[in-house]
Design a protein around this nucleic acid. Sequence first.
DNA 1: TTATTTCATTGAAACGTTTCAATAATATGT
DNA 2: ACATATTATTGAAACGTTTCAATGAAATAA
Lengths: 324, 324
Amino acid sequence: MVTLKDVAKRAGVSVSTASYSINGSSLITKETKQKVLLAAKEIGYRTNGPAKNLKEKKTNIIGLFLSGFTGPFFTDMMEGIQDVVIQNGYELMVYASDDNHRLLVERYVDGAIILNHHMEDSFLKAIADEKLPCVVLDREIKTPFINHVLLPNEQGSAMAVRYLLEKGHNRIGYMAGSRESYDGEMRLKGFKTEMKKYNRSFSRKDLLRADFTESSGYLAMSQYIEKRTQDVPTAFICANDEMAMGAIRAIKEKNLKIPDDIAIVGFDDIYVSKHFSPSITTIKVPRKEWGTIAAQSLFKMMDSTYDAETMEAVSVELMSRTSG
Amino acid sequence: MVTLKDVAKRAGVSVSTASYSINGSSLITKETKQKVLLAAKEIGYRTNGPAKNLKEKKTNIIGLFLSGFTGPFFTDMMEGIQDVVIQNGYELMVYASDDNHRLLVERYVDGAIILNHHMEDSFLKAIADEKLPCVVLDREIKTPFINHVLLPNEQGSAMAVRYLLEKGHNRIGYMAGSRESYDGEMRLKGFKTEMKKYNRSFSRKDLLRADFTESSGYLAMSQYIEKRTQDVPTAFICANDEMAMGAIRAIKEKNLKIPDDIAIVGFDDIYVSKHFSPSITTIKVPRKEWGTIAAQSLFKMMDSTYDAETMEAVSVELMSRTSG
DNA sequence: TTATTTCATTGAAACGTTTCAATAATATGT
DNA sequence: ACATATTATTGAAACGTTTCAATGAAATAA
């Protein structure tokens, strides 16, 4: 391995001079600097990051910790995060894990954005206790060094409910995602409370469970219709658009009309929703903005002159299209 | 920061004993080990990864270097890679960049999988020269420490061409993606040579350029049809399914029938292709397997007892559906 | 000329680990 | 009892950086 020592030797200077030169200190004279840079290039010197990190006690890396890489939802969000991270002169490292979280635990990052239900609150608190700034996207936590940026999920569900009620639907079913998802459960909660608020009954039998994928949505809806034949709601709200697509596919397959027999409202407004057939009425979530705000909030915390949280809010909007 | 020294002090042992205990050396007696572990827990000790890396000269991290996070194509591949990496006791870190590649340059990873047209061949060769094993997915490079796992793109295009010729199409158009994509250009090349092989002419005017997204495919096809009204091929091959979806949307919008007026064949077989309306005839690429093989190939190289490349091949298959 | 200031370079310590070689303590064989 | 082997613990060096404090050289002031 080519080290700074090798560079120094070849350039005929000391290690410290080499270091200063490479890091562009103004003390070093132009010629020596050039000499060092040349030597470095000639023998192919590359900084050893871990060594540098050790000395400087920082990595200039921000970690994004997800439970998995799956789904079209997250890529937009990642882009938003990435932009801000780069602007701030850091690198973004994305990491998916379900048990050990080595890269977070072992100080590979200077800050973290977390959307990973495999991480316990207590674990995150322990991390934050050691002054590692975190932004959590999938829970509410009140601790120094942890901020959270949440989606207005309940509000979104409420909008969907009101929209369908206005259209004259009285019995509305709900297709929920897997229980581990914070956003998912909040969407369900918002749905239930809004229904109650308008005195509409919602029975357990009209609650379908799937796992946010198209195929799971398809399966759940197929089975539901087969089981209850005629006894189905005139509308369904789905906790995300992918499941809505699956549900629609199942409904079409049974020769029922959308939205005449069953209306469908999704959540997220992923790219295809607009172009799907029928186009999907849905709650638009500004995913990229969500990422941006999360990252900004992180850097705000990392700034030493940090004074409590000034949380910008993410807002949500109903896109009325043909499916519902 | 809580260090090993603090743990040692609290446990009343030396730093080395603490280190051995934590790393589970068999030399240390059970009681001391317990004492150390307890102390570590009490004061919340966490290994400093960079320090450890520095000493051990390895990070146990594999990097996946992409140009961007966009598109549904890559998530499957990432899953394939992730599985193998975890199995081997490493962590996977995903990183998207378009200019500096710090995490690769500064030795944050023990091995790399690369699918990033922003990286020059010469850069990768320099990296490999320093004995950092790389697997490249988007180019052919012959150097020690670099392996490549390529998709049979040309073969796939050839299959698509033959399929359409057999169906009686004689004039076939092609919708290509952006030029930077190696896979994309290979698909185009395969298309052209197969057309030539069967003595079908292919004029430049039937070559559309888009950038692999649905919207770009839509736009390109819309403009094309508007410009040439009646003078269009009876079939198109698209370099990926997302563009195929866009093209289909454009064609439908002009009230042309698929596949009667224009047949469409895509490439990749992403999840929605099967459920799209019409369902898309396409070349199925085993993405997850691609990732798996790439990662396996990487670990093979990293194994000291490595003896040249024994490349497993990825194979491709035509899925005949309704769009073509 | 000598004292003082400025500028460029360097030696050495430090960051938090791991691990070799040395020591201390105990057990075994005679 | 002694020498020897075995086991448990530790001191110290090393990994590749950065950076403080010290040094040396050149320039300025007296």
